[in-house]
């Protein structure tokens, strides 16, 4: 069997370059009887905030051509219940586990990372600075290099673990943000989070998403992701983890050619939950 392992800098080596994307894979336990989770090079958990969040009112999702819009609102069980209910399952997995962290303000991100950073089973953190779906869902950090720089350097002071910043595509130019993450000590960036999107029901004349705007994902956004990655790869040296509409092995290769070192599978987990198997077979060929 060919070796697919990939080093993401000095701190983290993955058995293969395929991770799950946050928010599309729960905490792994939902899929554990369907899939061998250890096929993945790494598992990125659903966004975790300090306090539980029940999320946005429905409708939260809508299907769009070759994609979907979601506005879940970072529904999650909060740090305490995560530790009580999910840590044991994630801790016994052989896979690399990366915890995605979301916050309303800098102090929330820092507190979550501070309390998790001594857990031996957590390989690193992905910082969600780009959720478009909650008020102060971190998106200001994701579009403002000054705020982002402060956040990244203060998180860097909290942890020596692998620290990855998930960037938003909803900016004119992603390069200053990627550079800012690198300059302030991030080990990697992941890109792209979802694109702003909306859809309207022509019969009721109402938005198809309760919050009107949501995040567009799925195969439809792949070219946007590829373009952002090409641009970012020209200005930063830290690894880029590519995300955006990947559905098969050929897509993975395209992301690697654009400049990504590894990728995350997101929306495909919904419409082809066993895609990982075919992707790994393709890459090994």
């Amino acid at each position: 069997m060919s070796d697919l392992s990939v080093a993401l800098g000095a701190k983290l080596t993955l058995a293969n370059p395929i991770l799950t994307a946050s928010g599309t894979f729960g905490y792994g336990d939902e899929l554990s009887d369907l899939l061998d989770l250890e096929q993945f090079g790494g598992i990125v958990t659903k966004s975790l905030s300090l306090k539980p969040r029940e999320g946005n009112p429905p409708p939260r999702i809508v299907e769009t051509p070759a994609g979907m819009i979601n506005s879940i609102g970072l529904a999650n069980l909060g740090l305490d219940r995560f530790l009580d209910e999910k840590a044991a399952f994630l801790g016994q997995l052989k896979s690399t586990v990366i915890v995605n962290v979301a916050g309303r303000e800098q102090a929330e991100y820092i507190e979550v990372v501070r309390r998790l950073q001594s857990m031996p089973w957590i390989a690193g953190f992905e910082i969600n600075v780009s959720c478009p779906n909650v008020k102060q869902g971190g998106i200001e950090f994701g579009v403002n290099p000054e705020l982002l720089g402060d956040l990244v350097s203060s998180l860097r002071n909290q942890t020596d673990k692998f620290l990855m910043i998930k960037l938003s595509p909803n900016v004119n130019d992603i390069r200053p943000l990627a550079e800012c993450a690198q300059r302030n000590g991030a080990d990697a960036v992941s890109m792209i989070n979802t694109l702003y999107g909306s859809a309207i029901d022509i019969h009721s004349r109402r938005p198809k998403i309760h919050t009107v705007f949501g995040g567009l994902s799925g195969p439809a956004i792949k070219p946007v992701a590829i373009a952002h990655i090409i641009k970012a790869a020209r200005v930063i040296d830290i690894p880029i983890i590519g995300i955006g509409g990947i559905q098969d092995g050929a897509d993975v290769v395209e992301f690697l050619l654009a400049g990504a070192s590894a990728v995350q599978l997101g929306t495909v987990n919904f419409f082809d939950p066993t895609a990982i198997t075919g992707i790994l077979a393709f890459l090994r060929k």
């Binding site: 928010g23 599309t24 894979f25 729960g26 939902e30 899929l31 369907l34 999320g55 429905p58 409708p59 939260r60 999702i61 809508v62 299907e63 979907m68 979601n70 879940i72 529904a75 929306t267 987990n269 919904f270 419409f271 939950p273």
Partner: peptide, 13 residues
């Protein structure tokens, strides 16, 4: 409306 049917997407609340 469901995206996944598995509890992953949290869409069908």
């Amino acid at each position: 409306v469901m995206a996944c049917g598995l509890g992953l997407c949290q869409g069908c609340v």
